[in-house]
Simulated assay, not measured.
Amino acid sequence: MTNADVHTLTGAYVLHALSEAERAAFERHLGVCEACTQEVAELAATAGRLGLAVSETPPPELKARVMGRIPNVRQESPLPKQPSRAGGNPAWSLRASRWALAACLAAAAGLGGVAVWQHEEARDARAEAGAEQRRSAELAAVLGAPDAKADTARLGDGASATVVVSKSRDKAAFVSSGLATPPSGKVYQLWFADGDTMRPAGLLDPASRAQAVLLDGPVDQASGMGITVEPAGGSPKPTSAPVALMNFPA
C-alpha cells in the first residue's frame, strides 16, 4: 500500500472492508492525517443518516429460508487465478475490487444485513449469528423508525457521534467515528442518563474507531446518554469522568 493509496481507504475503513493489516496501517495514518480523519468522521455520520432513510427490517420468514438452505449449499472451490489483461493496472484492479466489496457491504447494511456462513462453520455459528442477526435487525428498526430523531455532536480530536432515539420502540442507537483507542485493558462504556443516575447501556468495540450500536435496555425516562472509559468488561457504575454527555433529541 503506497502513500497515495492510503488516502483512498476512508470509505472502505468506515464500512469495515479492510483486512486487519490494512486497518491497522490506516489507523496509524489517521493519527497523522487530519484530512482523512475529517473525511472518516463525515462518512460515518453520512452512513448513519443514510441508515435512517433506507434501512429496512428483513421479513421474519427470510431468516428461516436462509437457515434452511445452509446445510444444502455446497461450498465452491477457489477459482484459479486469472492472468491479468495486457496493459491492465494491478493497483487499480485491487482498488476496484475493494470498492466493489465496500458497495456490497453498504447495500447489506442498508437492508439490515443478512449473514451467510460457510457450511463447515454454520452449526457452531448459528446460535451466535442468530443473536447478532436479531440485534442488527433491531438496530435497523430503530434507525428506520418513522419517529426516529437524531442529534450529532463533535467530541473533540476529530471524533463525532450521532444518537438516534425512537420513542415508539423505546430504544436508542449510537453511531461514532474517530474515537481514540482506549488505553490497554480499558473500554468505552455507554450509559443512559436517568436524572443524576447513570444506567449501563453497553460497550463499544475498543478495536474499532467507527461503529454503530444499539444501546442495551429501554430508553424509559432517560433524557440523555454518556460515555466513560472503564475496565475491560465494563462497570456497574461509572469509575471515570465522562468522555462525552449527549442529550437525547426532543
Rank of each mutant, 00 (worst) to 15 (best):
S160M: 13
D194I: 03
L15A: 07
N247W: 04
D196Y: 07
S160K: 11
D5I: 05
E56H: 04
A145R: 03
L101Y: 03
S77H: 05
P59W: 01
T10W: 01
S55D: 06
T37N: 10
A96L: 14
S160R: 15
P58N: 04
A232I: 08
T197F: 11
A210F: 03
T228Y: 06
A148L: 07
H7P: 00
S168R: 10
A53V: 13
G48M: 04
L155I: 11
P231L: 15
A107L: 14
R209A: 13
S84E: 12
S184K: 14
E20Y: 02
D5A: 15
M246Y: 01
M1K: 02
A153T: 10
P60E: 01
K167F: 02
R135T: 10
C104I: 07
A100K: 05
E128T: 13
A108I: 00
G178C: 08
Q211T: 05
M225I: 15
A180N: 03
G158I: 10
L214I: 08
P236M: 12
L94S: 09
I70P: 00
G48F: 02
L179P: 01
C104F: 03
A108K: 00
A108W: 00
G195T: 12
A102Q: 02
R199I: 15
P146S: 05
R49W: 05
E230T: 13
L18H: 02
